[in-house]
């Protein structure tokens, strides 16, 4: 607990076993506030599982997790969200039959006491609407608020993913492949969007696209078979022979 308060996220010896398989294997990580870090690694490296452990959707089989200096290993996901954690999903996880604005409203009210109010209509909470619109604008969906999610394009749905995560003004944001399935143009604007996020937000990004990863972040952690195999500034990682082997095959 001595230096932990300084860290936005601290993982120590975190493991997750599924049956006999170690999806996440003794991962330790220290992320300082405001840091932007990419998590990269080939398919099945355990990146998404790691995110689920951090968000609390999955319980670890070993190790500890601390958020902003507080041990959250046993905390449920909503309690972690209340501490300022938000995440997006690699496979879009929205409310498909609601409109984009309604999606954002759900996200906005999530961390307010209003979510348990049942005595008056949501329409009576203009502040929530204002915030939801702001968030929509921020991700470039300002004119799509009235549209049902499943009528939105894939790119727009990815933008909405980010909007939902931003709605609660998180301090630590986990982005799981924000550009997955996007066209180059869409990918470019998404990258720009993420790059311009409030610099106070600590960012952890899982990314397959190396260009995006390098553009968004300064530090990179490489995961391979659930283990951290490299961790450092981007040029260090780029130069790491093991990483080159994993990504480019034998040198």
């Amino acid at each position: 607990m001595t230096e932990a308060p300084a860290l936005a996220l601290s993982l120590s010896g975190l493991s997750k076993e599924f049956g006999g398989l170690r999806a996440v294997d003794d991962v330790s990580l220290a992320v300082t506030p405001g840091e932007r870090r990419a998590i990269i690694g080939p398919n099945g490296a355990g990146k998404t599982t790691l995110f689920s452990l951090i968000s609390g959707e999955t319980r670890p089989t070993g190790g500890r997790i601390a958020l902003f200096g507080r041990d959250v290993t046993r905390l449920s996901p909503h309690r972690r969200a209340a501490l300022g954690l938000a995440r997006t999903y690699q496979i879009t996880n929205l409310f498909p039959r609601l409109t984009a604005l309604e999606n954002c409203l759900l996200a906005v009210q999530a961390l307010t006491p209003a979510k348990l109010h049942l005595h008056r209509g949501l329409a009576r909470y203009p502040a929530l609407f204002a915030r939801a619109r702001t968030v929509l604008e921020a991700v470039g969906l300002g004119d799509k608020g009235g549209e049902t999610v499943r009528t939105l394009s894939h790119g727009e749905q990815r933008q909405l993913e980010v909007a939902l995560a931003l709605a609660g003004t998180p301090r630590l944001l986990l982005l799981d492949e924000p550009t997955a399935g996007l066209s180059p143009a869409e990918s470019h604007s998404m990258t720009a969007l993420l790059k311009n996020l409030d610099s106070a937000i600590t960012l952890l990004v899982i990314e397959h696209d190396m260009d995006v990863a390098f553009e968004l972040t300064d530090r990179i952690t490489v995961l391979h078979y659930g283990r951290v195999v490299a961790d450092g500034l981007r040029h260090e990682v780029k130069a790491n022979p093991l990483v080159q082997e994993i990504y480019l095959g034998a040198p």
């Binding site: 959707e57 996901p77 909503h78 609601l98 759900l106 109010h117 049942l118 949501l122 709605a167 609660g168």
Partner: peptide
Amino acid sequence: GSPFGKSLVGIRESESRMRTLGY
């Protein structure tokens, strides 16, 4: 129609998302 009522619809649509949103 209340915020609470909307949260129920959210839960119906995606429980996991609601959880990580902080519900």
